[in-house]
Design a protein around this nucleic acid. Structure first.
Length: 853
RNA sequence: GGGCGCUUAGCUCAGUUGGCUAGAGCAGCUGAUUUACACUCAGCAGGUCGGGGGUUCGAGUCCCUCAGCGCCCA
């Protein structure tokens, strides 16, 4: 056995072992492994947005302790790392960081470089220049992220690194799209689409959030077409009056039943619209009768579709009102001249401006009844946006999810969720789907759709006959690549082609992380798919988890992974959610520097799956203490064993040792069972508790005997203690290794050549012929007596080293026999000079201390 | 509006199918201690398990109900 260091320390050991693990390729995935022998992890590729978050540390630690456990059980762990660098977050960051804006109409400027300091007025640059800056910034960010992961001791195989904007990921993503297209699972259509006017892009249902916003009910009178009076409706969006196509009330609403099928005339624009019945109309809301406009919200879209209403959409992609001609077929009007005259003042205006004009017009015409009624109501926003979404009609690619709802729900049932209740998140999301998954984004830094469209002699684009590349050509960019049989000169020309201008939703790519990380189409993929584990946070169940399930269901007719390990959130010390705007975000690197990586991991690993956990530096200090204790206990025990041949567990013969090993066997069983159900926190708790009793009680009891000293010393007794110390230390070092990998590696190497992280996970068979079923409770009963002795010394305020003149114990025969078995150790540990044991029904321990000199 | 989770000691949390006197760590208090311990060890104290009702020989645990907090979905 090697010598233990004189003064071991945990400070600085991270750097030593990181270097060593790199050199030894400790975490390298062996591609020759068979599928049964592989444990594969679908690592979340974090959004590389420049800010590291303590939440990263939290959830990546959870996955890592599982990875380390699996590796020790003998599995080849496929543990890749990805960076989600495409998409809007990167674009926003680049715009602000460099002070630029993408204008796809500009030509590429090879000599462009951004100014040192971001200018106030953003510089317009070409798409290619913009994308170059995106790459530049994300690469720099990725270095910082990687540094954190390494310092945290995440056991990733860095040769498996990928990024979602890489050519490899783009090729996979485009192939995935083409295969869906071939199978008819994706389609393009012109449809009302939720639209962010600031970002100028469509957004999907998964990116929506409701925000409570103040609004006003405007009571507006519509004259009946037959001239018999008027109907009053209430609306929060009077600006949509020119887009009104009908009024709607609940079919059972007695107030309006007689009116169904009759017509009214819109104020200001004199458009005749019907009064219709639909169940989604809420009799309790407003006046109980609403106007349907194309389109104010998603309910309007439902009504429009189910009631087969005409389209009078007027809000453009920039959020401004489009031209309209009243009196035309689309906008019939009984008074076209005044309608057009009024509308002339609205065209090109923003939503707020138009609202003001229309309210004024309604007031003047007397159609606005009474005062405005302020209300608070939920309004749909893009989760990253600042203005309410509009609905515009545009061409988009959709993945058909709605008609597969039942199958997708079944997939959710099939998946093992940790914790189990998280499956409700998935279920309620899938049940609530109301539009197909829109995967088109009118943005720049993303994976382009691999499609061109032919144009006819008039230059009209035929969207129904896309020109598609061969799989071998991928990745392609239709805005710069030319389809086979065409030349660049034919781009955007009659009888030529146009490239699809859009990029894919970021989830359309990251839903293929198993395919990207596992190199779809190669032998490797067969070995890692379906993945064993998907670790992730709960707020992306409806996006990442759901979309991955969708893609895998279509592509492989399978779940993409068997287990989903859902982490909670990290809350600030006041149990508030961390957010940039509140300014309570904690960055992890200083915490690693202060407390050590093991300590930070200890805190993270004590947060159970799915449980929100507050940042707690006190907990990190306890983790640090555990690491230091591991170091010192190992030094002490190994010091007792220095220079001798360590006896094998077969030599564990003393009853107290055998009982202690039985308890150890129970801990091994419990920790293993807990890991197998992804309850790492429980495994840690049990291991840790046992480790402390090992240090404070067992080692204290047997250290004299292990030295071959003290009264009644015997070779058998000494060897039994030595064997117990050695095997227990070995087992505990390994049980702790997934949680505190740096310090356990340090102490393991004091007496082993290889890494603890590829050492075999402890099993009962190692423990000699001891079984978890205990012959007796010798150890616990001896501890109880030891405690009584310590209590007496503490009460008497004397040193624990003070000797005990006489230890008198009255108790049942069974107990006395246990104590006799531990008598020697008790004498050694408690300084007991003499025992007096008497049989009695009740337990009583009397301690007579030797008077202090 | 529907759903999920949480509520146990001052704090952070355990408490597996209902069963010994409800546990741990931290903080607090009282001591001991410097040849494993960038301190460590021992001891003490601290809870009507959110409220109410029910099932049961027995409820922190199961059922009902109410309240508060958080989240998901609509």
């Amino acid at each position: 056995m090697k010598a233990t260091p004189e003064k071991p320390s945990i400070d600085g050991i991270e750097a030593v072992w990181l270097k060593n693990w790199d050199a030894e390729q400790t975490y390298a995935f062996d591609r020759s492994a068979t599928r049964e022998n592989v444990y594969s992890i679908d690592t979340p590729p974090p959004t590389v947005s420049g800010s590291l978050h303590i939440g990263h540390v939290f959830s990546y630690t959870h996955a890592d302790v599982i990875a380390r456990y699996q590796r020790m059980t003998g599995k080849q762990v496929f543990y890749p790392m990805g960076w989600d660098d495409n998409g809007l977050p990167t674009e926003r960051r680049v715009e602000n960081y460099f002070g630029v804006r993408c204008d796809p109409s500009l030509p590429y400027d090879p000599s462009f470089s951004p100014p040192e300091k971001a200018p106030e007025q953003k510089i317009s640059i070409s798409r290619k220049n913009f994308v170059e800056l995106c790459h530049q910034l994300t690469q720099a960010d990725e270095v910082v992220f990687k540094d954190l992961w390494r310092n945290l001791g995440v056991s990733i195989d860095w040769t498996l690194e990928y990024s979602t904007i890489s050519a490899h990921a783009q090729a996979i993503s485009q192939r995935g799209f083409l295969e869906m297209l071939k199978r008819g699972e994706v389609y393009s259509s012109v449809a009302p689409t939720l639209w962010d006017v600031d970002f100028r892009t469509a957004v999907s249902q998964a990116e929506l959030e409701d925000r409570e916003r103040p609004g006003n009910y405007h009571r507006v009178a519509f004259k009946k077409a037959d001239g018999s009076g008027s109907i009053e409706i209430e609306t929060t969006r009077p600006e949509l009056l020119p887009s009104c196509v009908a009024l709607v009330a609940h079919p059972d609403d007695e107030r309006f039943k007689p009116l169904f099928g009759t017509n009214v005339i819109t104020p200001l624009f004199s458009v005749e619209v019907p009064i219709l019945a639909h169940e989604l109309a809420d009799p309790e809301k407003g006046a109980g009768i609403a106007m349907i406009c194309t389109f104010g919200d998603t309910t309007d879209v439902t009504w429009w579709r189910e009631l087969s209403l005409p389209t009078r959409a007027l809000i453009g992609r920039d959020g401004r009102f489009l031209p309209a001609e009243f009196g035309s077929e689309q906008f019939p009007s009984t008074d076209a001249p005044s309608a057009n005259a009024f509308y002339a003042g609205l065209e090109g205006k923003t939503v707020n401006q138009v609202r003001a004009s229309i309210v004024e017009g309604l007031t003047q015409s007397g159609a606005l009844i009474g005062e405005l009624k302020p209300i608070t109501h939920p309004v749909k926003f893009y989760e990253k946006g600042e203005r309410p979404l509009e609905i515009v009609t545009s061409r988009q690619w959709f993945v058909a999810t709605l008609k597969h709802r039942e199958a997708l729900l079944k997939r959710g049932e099939e998946l093992s969720w940790h914790p189990d209740f998280m499956k409700h998140r998935y279920k309620s999301w899938v049940e609530g789907l109301n539009v197909d998954w829109n995967i088109s984004r009118q943005r720049f830094f993303g994976v382009p759709f691999p499609a061109w469209y032919p144009t006819d002699a008039n230059g009209t684009i035929d969207f129904d006959a896309p020109i598609l590349p061969e799989l071998s050509e991928l990745p392609i960019d239709p805005s710069s690549d030319v389809p086979k049989g065409f030349s660049e000169a034919q781009r955007n020309q009659p009888n030529g082609f146009v490239g699809d201008p859009d990029v894919m939703d970021t989830w359309a790519t990251s839903s293929l992380t198993p395919q990207i990380a596992g190199h779809w189409g190669t032998e490797l993929f067969e070995k890692i798919f379906p993945m064993d584990l998907r670790p992730q946070a709960h707020e992306i169940i409806r996006t990442w988890l759901f979309s991955t399930v969708v893609r895998s269901h279509f592509q492989e007719n399978s779940l993409p992974f068997k287990n989903a390990l859902i982490s909670g959130w990290v809350l600030d010390p006041d149990r508030k959610k961390m957010s940039k705007s509140v300014g309570n975000v904690v960055t992890p690197m200083p915490l690693i520097e202060t407390h050590g990586a093991d300590a930070l991991r200890y805190w993270a690993a004590s947060g159970r799956p799915g449980t929100d956990t507050a940042i707690d530096e006190a907990q990190m200090k306890i983790g640090r203490r555990l690491a230091i204790k591991t170091l010192n206990a190992s030094k002490f025990v190994l010091g007792r064993l220095e220079g001798i041949t360590i006896p094998s567990p077969a030599e564990i013969t003393e009853p107290i040792d055998r009982d202690f090993i039985a308890l150890l066997a129970n801990v091994v069983n419990e920790a293993t069972a807990a890991f197998n159900t992804y309850d790492y926190a429980r495994a840690l708790e049990r291991t840790e508790a046992f480790f402390w009793t090992f240090c404070d009680n067992y080692v204290e009891l047997v250290k004299t005997r292990a030295y071959g000293e003290g009264e009644n010393a015997s070779e058998a007794g000494t060897n039994s203690a030595r064997a117990t110390l050695a095997i227990t230390l070995s087992v505990l070092q390994r049980l702790l290794a997934p949680f505190i990998p740096f310090v356990t590696e340090e102490v393991w190497r004091w007496w082993h050549d290889g890494s603890v992280h590829v050492a075999p996970w402890p099993v009962i068979a190692e423990l000699g012929n001891v079984t978890p079923s205990r012959d007796s409770a010798v150890y616990e009963q001896v501890c109880e007596v030891l405690e009584a002795v310590r209590r007496e010394k503490s009460t008497q305020k004397v040193s624990q080293k003070n000797e005990v003149e006489l230890l008198k114990i009255d108790g049942p025969a069974e107990l006395l026999s246990a104590i006799r078995n531990g008598e020697t150790d008790l004498k050694n540990a408690g300084g007991v000079k003499a025992f007096e044991l008497n049989e009695s029904a009740t337990l009583s321990i009397s301690v007579t201390l030797t008077p202090q000199s």
